[in-house]
Computed example of a mutant assay.
Amino acid sequence: MRNSLRVGVTILTLLLSCSFSAWSQDPTIYVSPHSVDETLSNVYIGIDNNGHKYLNTHFYETDSIDQGEFKGKVYVVDFTLRNLNKIISCEPTIALDIPLKIMVWEEDGDVYLAYINPFVYKKRYFIMGCDDLLDEYNKSIIRIVNDAIRTH
């Protein structure tokens, strides 16, 4: 009886952890050596220089006075990659996460950039195949981020 209960709990734990990982965000985060303004400017230039399309920047400012909560400015840059329609033809529901985003913020004197790795979308939308496209898109986003944090 104890062994079957232990096996049942193990299976349930495995299923729950798989379920949570399928819906997780898993952002990839980089530290920028530049100010927020310069980092944002470099993101815009990187998007343009790599042949992608800038759409919009959303600005959020928090003024939390509770200890342990973030207080500061957050910028979310919306953009699309060239040939993004190819991945939509692979799995249309991925369009729910388009436009793609790069987030820039400052916290405790450090500037950060974050984005969602396109392979997270593979898990989220159960995309079969299309790994070459997802890899291409991931490399494109990494180029934009590397352009933004590169020191000259």
Results as ranks from 00 to 15, higher is better:
M1V: 11
N3C: 10
N3H: 14
S4T: 15
L5C: 08
L5R: 11
V7P: 06
G8C: 08
G8A: 04
I11L: 13
L12H: 03
L12P: 02
T13G: 12
T13K: 09
T13H: 07
L14T: 05
L16W: 14
S17G: 06
S19Q: 09
F20T: 13
S32E: 07
H34G: 04
V36N: 03
V36L: 08
D37H: 12
D37P: 02
T39E: 02
L40Y: 10
L40V: 06
N42E: 08
V43I: 13
I45D: 12
I47M: 07
D48N: 13
D48P: 03
N50R: 14
G51T: 06
L55W: 11
T57Q: 04
F59I: 06
D63H: 11
D63T: 08
S64D: 08
E69H: 13
E69P: 01
K71Y: 10
Y75G: 00
V76L: 00
V76K: 00
V76W: 00
T80Q: 09
K86F: 07
I88F: 13
I88L: 09
L96P: 02
P99W: 09
P99H: 06
L100R: 10
L100T: 05
I102F: 01
M103L: 05
D108H: 09
D108C: 04
D108I: 12
G109C: 06
D110T: 03
V111R: 09
Y112V: 01
L113V: 03
L113R: 04
A114N: 00
A114T: 02
V120C: 10
V120D: 09
Y121N: 05
Y121C: 02
Y125V: 00
I127S: 00
D131I: 07
D131V: 05
D131C: 03
L133A: 03
L133P: 03
L134R: 05
L134W: 04
Y137K: 04
N138K: 11
K139N: 14
R143W: 08
V145N: 05
V145C: 08
N146E: 15
I149G: 03
R150L: 12
T151R: 14
H152A: 15
